[in-house]
């Protein structure tokens, strides 16, 4: 693909300046936040000498550590289930025709475009009713926490995983799969030895994306988490609303680095396209 026409004169300069300003806008706040997380000053936006105290405080705080471990537990289970369900959904949509396919396709799009707040409200009301029904039928009293948060995260992550895996499947020719079937491979074997290795980068990319989204979610989690059982972003959000402290800077940087690392890994996985 040939590059687009580059304008000349002042327009060219303006494009370049705008380009660098956008990157400055994106990254300056992040860099400053990281910088201030090492500042000794009690004022969050002021430099007062280098220290690691705030990180120490974070790892000493049992509340923060508990929230962190909750976040990780949820992210792992959510990723596992969403990857399995999302990949199956992607395969069914890219490789088969069946009744109700169009409805399913549209339904899969909804969790991606629906505003966070709406989905949070939906799930809050749902679990209110759902747990009542379970108590009435099975006599088990369930509390919001691990279960409700995981279920909610999977509900939006299936869609994200399936989008990523579908992109991979769509860009892949069916020749090899057909050849395998022609050579009397069973459907399962054709999938296991031909399709699966080819879409693996897509699956890995989807998995890391699902994990990132699960680790980052605030709004939905806040609505479906129970008293005393919450994730790190919701814990931090609560702290911010009470007032900013250097401790929040440190926790933020930890969260920031975790999600950046996962995103970069996800991009690398998805980009190893031409090697499969």
């Amino acid at each position: 693909m040939s590059s687009a026409v580059e304008p000349r004169g002042w327009a060219k300069t303006a494009l370049h300046v705008n380009g660098w300003l956008v990157y400055l806008f994106f990254y300056a706040p992040i860099v400053l936040l990281v910088l201030f997380s090492f500042s000794e000053s009690r004022n969050v936006g002021k430099w007062g000498g280098f220290t690691l105290d705030w990180y120490q405080q974070f790892f000493d705080s049992s509340n923060a550590r508990g929230a962190l471990s909750n976040s990780v537990k949820i992210a792992l289970i959510v990723t596992l289930i969403s990857v399995i369900l999302g990949t199956m959904a992607a395969l069914s949509l890219e490789r088969f025709t069946f009744r109700g396919k169009k409805v399913f396709d549209a339904l899969l799009y909804l969790p991606i475009i629906i505003p966070d707040v709406t989905m949070a409200v939906m799930l809050l009301l749902f679990f209110g009713q759902f747990y009542d029904v379970i108590e009435a039928v099975f006599g088990i009293q369930m509390r919001k926490g691990f279960g409700s948060i995981s279920i909610s995260h999977i509900a939006f992550n299936i869609s994200f995983v399936s989008v990523v895996v579908r992109a991979r499947l769509a860009g892949m020719s069916t020749d090899l799969e057909e050849a395998a079937v022609d050579l009397y491979a069973s459907r399962w074997k054709a999938f296991r030895y031909v399709t699966f290795p080819q879409i693996l980068p897509g699956i890995a990319g989807g998995a890391l994306l699902a994990m990132t989204l699960s680790l980052d979610d605030v709004v939905i989690t806040q609505f479906v988490s129970g008293p005393g059982w919450t994730t790190l972003p919701v814990y931090v959000f609560g702290l911010i609303r009470k007032g900013v402290t250097p401790l929040i800077n440190a926790v933020s940087v930890v969260m920031l680095l975790a999600s950046m690392l996962l995103v970069v890994l996800s991009l690398i996985a998805q980009r190893s396209r031409r090697t499969g």
């Binding site: 706040p29 992040i30 980052d216 605030v218 972003p233 911010i240 800077n249 920031l256």
Partner: peptide, 22 residues
């Protein structure tokens, strides 16, 4: 990278930058 980076934290960064004495 910013597209998928923690939204809460990215907003919080502006709180730090715009704050008193920031």
């Amino acid at each position: 990278i910013p597209f998928w980076t923690n939204f809460l934290v990215r907003n919080y960064a502006w709180r730090v930058i715009l704050g008193n004495d920031g």
